[in-house]
Design a protein around this nucleic acid. Structure first.
Lengths: 238, 238
DNA sequence: AATTAAACATACTACTGAGTATGTTGCAAT
DNA sequence: ATTGCAACATACTCAGTAGTATGTTTAATT
């Protein structure tokens, strides 16, 4: 799937996702052209995604017009519709990119040993930190969760939607699996895994609502918030 | 504005699917005509609020058209615009009603004695239960939180928005005050009250995203979920 | 040097949806 | 019995917006 540009010098994303439905992709996946002064490796699409994420976060899906995104880009509709077949496809791609970053961050800390409880804590911390560092993308993800209907009229869009929901289910399963591992090794006493996981993820996801980066906020500040949130969810307040 | 706030009794239905639709011809329901001596503004248009809440929950603010709400009502725009000056005002009133029910439920359990931690737990449980019982209204509240811009163009709308945000601030303060009381009486060890409260409220508020009442769900079922959520937020999983 | 296609911009269409203007009906007080 | 008005319904306007059709520029290829 994805923008099949093969020129991904950028260490970022691309291609990693399972190839699924093709919806609203660039028509001809040849190499992107660069103007004379362009910095090599810059993915043009990431600019569109960034601006779209920002707009969607601030004004919601329906509240954002393609012209809004284009204005923020310093461009016009033509540019956006050159890469995305529809507004819905653009939204989906932001959502998918957000989920990709979340998955990446959480999976990265899952193999660090430790019992179920400690692994769960590390996963929550990674989740939280990723939220704080990608607040626009993840705010879009949060929005999209209960927008299962949006305007998914076409078949292709519905397939993309199914794909996204599957990713979300798998993501939640990462946590509930580790939770049960903690129950098995005795490090977790709580019983109802489903409710507990939904609660913990809610506490972390809620940062999409209240958190806005302050000026001069350092990485250490974000890490502190993430660590506290994760610790409280595992250990409680008492 | 031009709205009064005392719509009396709180225990309406639980946001279950509005069976108001009743496909038929322009029906003439019991037209409650105002009798002499009635206070102007004591409107019983709770049906409008219910349908609006349901629509806003399912399709979002921008995604919901006034005609959508009217259709669900089994009426036309005329009826809605007879009571509300604009779509934004309607949204605000749903939001305000949701916050009113939340406040009522939480304050009701605050005087039951007990140390800070136990009071906090009871407040969280009451909060959660109210969410589950009024999921449509509270889903709108959750939506509205980060929609500070919406389309608040008029001065009156901005004032209502300020009022709502003040209510939200006061609501959060209820929790952080009790949290600090718990720190003082030794029943709460966690340090950062701000982060902790935001996390706990997030866990509870997140029910607006995932929770949808199943068929035949009893009050006891909801109470069980609420109790578990509250207990986990206070005591953790370990 | 000419050709080609990607990467946009510009100009337009068609439609949706918020809000309004105006009609209609029934109850209640006169 | 007539009148006044609340409580709607009906029929419009018009601004905003998703999507399209087409023009323009630039860089790589031949």
């Amino acid at each position: 799937m994805a923008r099949s540009d093969h020129e991904a010098e950028g260490q970022r994303d691309l291609g990693a996702d399972a190839a699924v439905v093709e919806a609203g992709r660039p028509r001809r996946p040849t190499r992107s052209r660069r103007k004379a002064g362009d910095v090599a490796g810059a993915d043009n699409n990431i600019d569109i995604l960034d601006c779209a994420a920002q707009c969607f976060m601030e004004m919601g899906f329906q509240g954002t017009s393609i012209d809004d995104v284009a204005r923020r880009l310093g461009a016009t509709k033509g540019r956006i519709y050159h890469y995305y077949a529809s507004k819905t496809d653009l939204f989906f791609d932001v959502h998918r990119e957000g989920m990709r970053r979340l998955n990446e961050a959480v999976i990265a800390v899952m193999g660090s040993g430790g019992n179920g409880r400690e692994t769960l804590r590390a996963m929550l911390e990674a989740h939280a930190l990723t939220m704080l560092q990608n607040i626009a993308y993840l705010a879009v993800v949060v929005q999209g969760v209960h927008m299962h209907r949006l305007g998914a009229t076409t078949l292709a869009q519905r397939q993309v939607l199914d794909e996204i929901m599957a990713i979300r289910r798998d993501f939640e399963k990462l946590f509930s699996d580790v939770f049960r591992r903690g129950q098995a090794d005795g490090s977790i006493r709580a019983e109802n895994a489903s409710i507990a996981v939904k609660g913990m993820l809610g506490a972390v996801n809620w940062t999409a609502i209240w958190y806005r980066p302050r000026a001069n906020e350092t990485l250490a500040d974000k890490q502190k918030i993430a660590r506290e949130l994760a610790a409280l969810q595992v250990g409680g307040v008492a």
